[in-house]
């Protein structure tokens, strides 16, 4: 009897282990979700009522962080969802490992997607290998200012320095100490251009010190939080930052009552009372142009830029923050100056 019970128990344990093993295997292979959220390949998610999937433009997106990161990846997901014509969108996000991203890019191209978006500067080398194998597919690659000479690649980039400059001007206007802190990830990509513009804007409007801390990581939230703490300890009374790990810094800013300036996506929801303004990327401005070119038979070969003048960059002020009128006016003047060319945010 005892042996029988032990045998049953062993079978149960084997069953549980088998289920776990399957779970482990599934997690290793990536997970599917309907809204394109988690790491892994998703089914086409965006369709319009009455449109059959066959008639929709098939777009696939491969991105390094989560689709709703309030930063880099979300800016592209939002943009695709804003396109004037509905599309069938597939997403693989959370692909910090370049080899995983390369696999996804190749699979999407082979699966019949007309446009594959490789949303990350780091995917460039992979794209150089993959794009020539699929001459009928248009690849969009950013942030990058060149197409690597590939005929079926469109490059895109933001002039993030423009919004950075505006945010810097407004930050200096509301700073009491004149000391402003910046939390950056790795010194690369649009984080550098945003921070350069922010630094220039703040100094142009009277800031005495802009302390810039690159944490060395795009994803370490705890380090970003400690960077913000260190900046505040050293006198910063206004903060900004770039990349998805800044939520840690926003949390510290929120605790300490320090105003925050965002970039890439509107970060007001993180603290509706302390986020002053966000530079928002509207990639749809250049996506529409790229799609139009593809329809006209041009599959790539051109680099596009979003900026304040073409509406691809927008400064979204938070109405929930009591921004003094003169600070807002300084921001508006900076926007006008950049658009008319009288201000060089990189200068």
């Amino acid at each position: 009897m005892r042996n029988k019970n032990r045998s049953r128990r062993f079978k149960l344990l084997r069953f549980v282990a088998a289920v776990m093993a399957l779970g482990l295997l599934a997690s290793a292979c990536g997970d599917d979700s309907d809204d394109g959220g988690a790491t892994g390949t998703t089914a086409p998610a965006t369709t319009a009522a009455g449109d059959s999937a066959a008639t929709l433009l098939k777009i696939a997106l491969v991105a390094p962080s989560a689709s709703d990161d309030l930063a880099f990846t979300q800016s592209m997901v939002d943009a695709i969802n804003e396109l004037s014509d509905p599309v069938a969108l597939s997403i693989t996000d959370g692909t910090f490992v370049i080899e995983e991203a390369a696999t996804a890019i190749r699979e999407y191209a082979a699966a019949g997607n007309e446009i594959v978006v490789a949303h990350g500067t780091q995917f460039g080398a992979s794209l150089a290998e993959i794009a020539p194998d699929f001459p009928e597919v248009t690849f969009l690659w950013g942030t990058s200012t060149d197409t690597q000479g590939l005929a079926n690649v469109f490059a895109y980039s933001p002039d993030a320095a423009e919004g950075g400059y505006v945010n810097g001007v407004v930050a200096a206007a509301i700073s009491s100490s004149g000391s402003i802190g910046v939390v950056g990830p790795i010194e690369a990509g649009d984080a550098v251009t945003y921070i350069t513009g922010f630094n220039n804007g703040a100094l142009a409007n009277g800031a005495t010190e802009v302390s810039i801390t690159y944490t060395g990581s795009f994803g370490d939230v705890a380090l970003a939080a400690e960077a913000a703490t260190a900046l505040i300890t050293n006198g910063a009374d206004v903060l900004t930052g770039s990349a998805q790990m800044v939520v840690g810094a926003v949390g510290v800013a929120s605790d300490e009552g320090v105003p925050w300036f965002g970039t890439q996506a509107n970060q007001t929801s993180l603290d509706p009372s302390l986020v002053v303004a966000s530079q928002v990327y509207h990639w749809e401005v250049v996506l529409e142009e790229m799609i139009a070119q593809r329809k006209a038979g041009v599959l790539g070969g051109e680099a596009f830029e979003i900026n304040l003048a073409n509406g691809g960059l927008e400064i979204e002020f938070n109405d929930g923050f009591d921004l003094p009128a003169d600070a807002r006016a300084a921001g508006d003047a900076a926007i006008a100056g950049i658009i008319d060319g009288s201000i060089d945010p990189n200068g």
């Binding site: 790491t39 892994g40 989560a66």
Partner: peptide, 12 residues
């Protein structure tokens, strides 16, 4: 891998 993938999935 299970923890990485499952926590990500649940979060999304």
């Amino acid at each position: 891998l299970f923890g990485l993938g499952f926590s990500d999935l649940m979060f999304q």
